[in-house]
Amino acid sequence: MTVTAILSALPQEQGSLVQALQNPERIEHAGRSFWRGQLHGQLLVLALSGIGKVAAASTSASLIERFGVQRLVFTGVAGGLGAGVQVGDVVLAREFLQHDMDASPLFARWQVPGHAVRMACDESLTAMLSIAASHGLALGNAGFDHEKTPPRLHQGLIASGDRFVSTAAASQQLRQELLAAGHDALAVEMEGAAVAQVCHEHGLPFAAIRTISDRADDSAHVDFTHFVRHVAGPRADAIVHAFLRLLPK
């Protein structure tokens, strides 16, 4: 049976998935705790990568090499970057790029040598996540009043880098630089593009979905813990449960 990995950066982003596992087994490897078990008839490995591209790449490699996973899904939070992407919305990745990669003039800016500038997610997994996202959006924003409009689903490009974009000036500069080169990034975070690269190199299907916790500006630190615990975590639970039910047995 195919083994599926669900990866998040922080415990709060993982929700209560560990508690939901059937026949859970905890395995310590390479400084990480991995949980193996079953859920909705699927063999599952849950892991926390920690923050940043190196941590995410290392954990992804362990999931593939040590645990033999055959598809990988990342859930968590991100900062909103695109027009109309608001706090509480969900962004489903279609592609990733590394916004802090710059090997020019040897390679194009943002290009990881040996790869395209933008790395595509798996179409089949992404389509199932899109369906599953409706279950998470149905939860609303759980009383989080930063935004009054109902949460929406966006699909497109996510930018990753080892920098927490937390000021309006930095957010605007990043968005403008990417847009000028034709890259309309909807969200920014710190892990997804690295996971995408590892999965591409191993020929592994990969998909990712993020709840927008802030607008990657001067309010990026406001109520983050509350939001992740009460909105992003429960939403990840709902999406992952629905996604697993859609996977072929």
Rank of each mutant, 00 (worst) to 15 (best):
S60C: 15
H183E: 12
S49L: 08
L179R: 11
P113V: 00
C199A: 15
A108T: 05
R32W: 08
H135F: 05
S49R: 11
A83P: 08
R152A: 13
L179D: 08
V90P: 11
V188N: 05
T2A: 10
A232R: 03
V165S: 06
E201G: 02
H99N: 12
S8E: 02
Q12F: 07
F164K: 07
P151Q: 00
L46I: 09
G140K: 07
F34G: 00
P205I: 14
V231H: 01
D89S: 12
P234D: 11
L246C: 10
H183F: 15
R109W: 00
A30I: 09
A103E: 14
E189C: 13
P248K: 05
A142P: 02
R229G: 07
A20H: 13
A20L: 13
A216K: 00
L153E: 06
Q172P: 01
F164A: 12
G136R: 00
E201L: 13
L92A: 07
S134G: 08
G41E: 12
T211M: 04
F144N: 15
V198R: 01
S219H: 13
A242L: 02
Q19I: 03
A30C: 12
Q42V: 13
L178K: 06
V90R: 02
L186A: 01
G41A: 09
T4D: 04
G84P: 13
E28C: 11
Q176T: 11
H115V: 00
V165Y: 07
V231D: 04
A132H: 04
G203E: 14
D145M: 07
S104I: 10
S134I: 02
E65S: 14
A168D: 15
F144C: 12
A61D: 03
A5I: 06
S134V: 06
G31F: 13
P248M: 05
R32P: 03
G15D: 05
V188Y: 09
R36D: 04
A138N: 08
